[in-house]
Design a protein around this nucleic acid. Sequence first.
DNA 1: TTGGCCATTGCAGCCCGTGCAACGCAGGGT
DNA 2: ACCCTGCGTTGCACGGGCTGCAATGGCCAA
Lengths: 273, 273
Amino acid sequence: MSQTVDRALTILASLGEGPASLEQAAGRIGVHKSTALRLLRTLEEHGFVHRQSDHRYRLGGRLFSLAQQALEGIDVRQVSAPYLASLNERYGHTVHLAVLEGAEVLFLDKVDARYPSGSDSWLGPASRIGKRAPAAATALGKVLLADLSEDQLALTLEDQEFPARTPRSLRSADELRAELTAVRRQGWSLDQGEYEEAVNCVAAPIQGIDGTAIAACAISAPVRLASVSELSRLLPELLCTVEAVSLAYGGSPTPRWCENRCGAKHAVRASHT
Amino acid sequence: MSQTVDRALTILASLGEGPASLEQAAGRIGVHKSTALRLLRTLEEHGFVHRQSDHRYRLGGRLFSLAQQALEGIDVRQVSAPYLASLNERYGHTVHLAVLEGAEVLFLDKVDARYPSGSDSWLGPASRIGKRAPAAATALGKVLLADLSEDQLALTLEDQEFPARTPRSLRSADELRAELTAVRRQGWSLDQGEYEEAVNCVAAPIQGIDGTAIAACAISAPVRLASVSELSRLLPELLCTVEAVSLAYGGSPTPRWCENRCGAKHAVRASHT
DNA sequence: TTGGCCATTGCAGCCCGTGCAACGCAGGGT
DNA sequence: ACCCTGCGTTGCACGGGCTGCAATGGCCAA
């Protein structure tokens, strides 16, 4: 929309791939050196890029502080942190917290698996805090999409691709809609190697004051360590956790009374719409 | 330098303080609504801001991923991580890794104290990853400033204030220079409640291939738990650590190097000095 | 239905961003 | 010592695109 800002942001993104000299930076986005210079200077004034002693530009500290500030501002993250840690503590699997952003999920928090991280148990690079992933391909995404109205969903899925990341990936909006219907009914979602072939996930929504899903929580594990049915066995715990977070977030600051009721909690949940 | 980009970045920074409607955002930076709209749209296209369902803007996921990407790209962070963890393991105090950026230190990594975090042992909010702090007021900063040439130092300190954060803060460039002389002689620096009144630190430089300080490592502890002399007792350990990191960092750039020489040729690790 | 509020759009004016070309400077080759 | 190449930086004239006003549209509440 705004050419100048567009270029500045492009140059900023390009620096994410590594430091660059003025000429390189200009080349990467296809503008004249002097143009790139002025953009970089402006970015530098604001601390978004930093000029190192060899005159090359790299991303600056302002980026870190802004990102950090933003993360701190997301209170669902604060609230849920201890619950995620507790889930991780009990079963050792990786736990994720994510929100929906357009047609992608954005990972807000992560507690790494507690088993020794051999190459087989590594969940891939796709789950670092701040990373994003196509919503339709993940348990987290599906549970968040399931909460959208039909209108919102249509808008969100507009122009979306359904690439075959793995053989089990959903390949069309229709497949996704069918899946979402099931997710709505049961209140949680499953990912059987649809995103990373060797990784299974279960996810459930965290609900805000008005009952809409504001975030989602997932347990992920390599198929080698937990089959889908084994993972499903953790469902009651997961549902308890998201319920506790939802309550804690929704107003009542009551900390983990979850454990009292967890035993009684089963997979049956009222469909929320 | 560039008005449009300047405004866009200002608006971005202002969103760091919390979500805002179009009108609020425009008001914060003093431009017309339509102008703010176009800037925000451009930022949104790039994912730096995100529009939530109530039409308000908040910082977007791109910010997180860029920041994360940049953090991963800083290899001194990777290299030193295990050493920092080990230091923390042995004495329980908070350990920091930081670099110099202008007249500020930028915290790259942090291992939190292992003692129960009562209000007395909390180091304050000033040390999160990505946060910055005035270099002259911290042990980390002093040890990094001490490595600059007189010219660089003069340039860096230009227009710098020396606010009295605490009664022991350095109040002028002259005081700082005197301190730096001592730091240079001894090879490490001390912060006796100059930044946070109740916190002491010791810091030492991590040196790159050419012997210049590329980062610094510090041990911090509340005065209640460790007096300056107690902290000084950890100096040998700290110096050992930074030496080990320096060697690990400077000696062999990447461990993969020997396994795959052809590929490594392309991995640009030019000595730009 | 009306009115108010806010996001959004169209548009004319002119500011300011753009790219060219020239300059300064450092490094390396002869 | 010289030149020469490569890169960052500066000055400048042109016109593209940014700006702010005003009008429109959509939503909510009274």
